[in-house]
Computed example of a mutant assay.
Amino acid sequence: MPFLTIAFPVFNPIAISIGPFAIRWYALAYIAGIVLGWIYARALIKNDKLWGGPAPITLLQMDDFILWVTIGIILGGRTGYVLFYNLPFFIQNPAEIFELWKGGMSFHGGFLGCVAAVIWFARKNDVPILSLGDITTAVGPIGLFLGRIANFINSELWGRPADPSLPWAMVFPNGGPLPRHPSQLYEAGLEGIVLFTILAVMIRMGALKRPGLILGSFITFYALARITGEFFREPDPQLGFLWGGLTMGMLLSVPMVIAGAIIIVMAWRGKFPKHVPGSDQGRP
Score class of each variant (00 low, 15 high):
P2I: 00
P2A: 15
F3N: 07
I6M: 12
I6N: 02
V10I: 14
F11D: 02
I18F: 15
R24L: 05
L28N: 02
I31Y: 02
A32N: 01
V35T: 11
L36C: 14
I39P: 00
A41L: 04
I45H: 13
K49N: 10
K49M: 09
P54W: 05
P56I: 10
T58Y: 11
I74L: 15
L75V: 13
G77R: 00
I91E: 08
Q92G: 13
L100Y: 10
K102E: 08
G104K: 07
F107I: 08
F111I: 11
C114L: 15
A116Q: 04
A116Y: 03
A117C: 11
V118C: 12
F121E: 04
F121D: 04
R123E: 14
P128W: 14
L132V: 07
T136H: 06
L144K: 01
F145A: 12
N151Q: 03
N154R: 05
N154W: 06
E156D: 05
W158V: 05
G159Q: 14
G159P: 12
P161C: 07
S165I: 08
L166S: 09
P173R: 03
N174G: 00
P177V: 09
Q184D: 06
Y186G: 03
Y186P: 07
A188G: 00
L195V: 08
M202Y: 06
M202D: 06
L208M: 07
P211F: 11
P211H: 10
G216Q: 09
A225D: 11
R233A: 10
L239A: 04
F241N: 02
F241I: 09
F241S: 00
L252A: 05
S253F: 04
S253R: 01
M256E: 12
I264S: 00
R269K: 14
S279E: 09
D280L: 15
Q281D: 14
P284S: 15
P284H: 03
